[in-house]
Amino acid sequence: MSAITVRQLTHIYSPDTPFKQVALNEVSLDIQKGEFLGIIGYTGSGKSTLIQHFNGLLKPTSGTVLVDGEDIWKKGYDIRSVRFKVGLVFQYPEYQLFEETVYKDIAFGPKNMGLSTEEIDSRVREAAEFTGLAPELLQRSPFELSGGQKRRAAIAGVMAMRPQVLILDELAAGLDPKGRNKILNQIKEYHSKTGSTVLLVSHSMEDIARYSGRVLVMHRGSLLMLDEVSKVFARADELVKTGLDLPELTKVLLILQQRGFPVNTSAYTKEDVRAELLRLKGVTGC
């Protein structure tokens, strides 16, 4: 069963002008319910345009977007309802904070859904817990928080809508290594606890390799690959050609392969790469 289905999706910015720009070209794909999907592509590859179609912020120039099996642009469909089904956290989401307290800010989405006060309360607290915001922070002004806490509050504001699909655009940008790992691990936990679908857009191949099940690669407005992590990183040449980087450990394996070692380059996690190298040492050592 797919959470989001896209068929022949084309998006053109400023059509009929000299600035016309084809941002997406006939993209078709299926996102499975409950998967953790990584999205990669250099700046301007169309990935931002693509994710803004998933929650109906952008309307396709042609083609269809189905959320939960329903065409979101068919007559009579309330486009606002799709924003609650597909939660989108933009890059540097802390700029969206505006309420007097963190609590009220997280409650903004659920309130727009028209939920009861009790329901809103339980969702705010749940979201704060998922993002690791201490309960005493909820009554503070969001503008008093530290950079990392602001980021968490903003993410909680989207999680509190309990979307079936959660999209995170460059969620760890600008954080230090510790902050990065912490927030990514919390998202991982959110994913396994709620069973919801998570889409992670990132420039960091390390993060993509570590957290996603499948990876979607965008290139010049088209879908280049949509496959399991190991299969995507196995096509290293193609990735490099499109201007993308490889996970650092994959680079190590590839250099060894070039030097003629019989190494299996499909390993990409820390543990698998280590095991592969230990095996290599044992084998050639015999």
Partner: peptide, 27 residues
Amino acid sequence: PSTELYLDLVKTGGFELAVVLNPTECA
């Protein structure tokens, strides 16, 4: 990541102790 990988190999695989700084050095 390459530095960490190599230090792991030193610890678990008996590789010679060294600090590498990038994938090329590591490989």
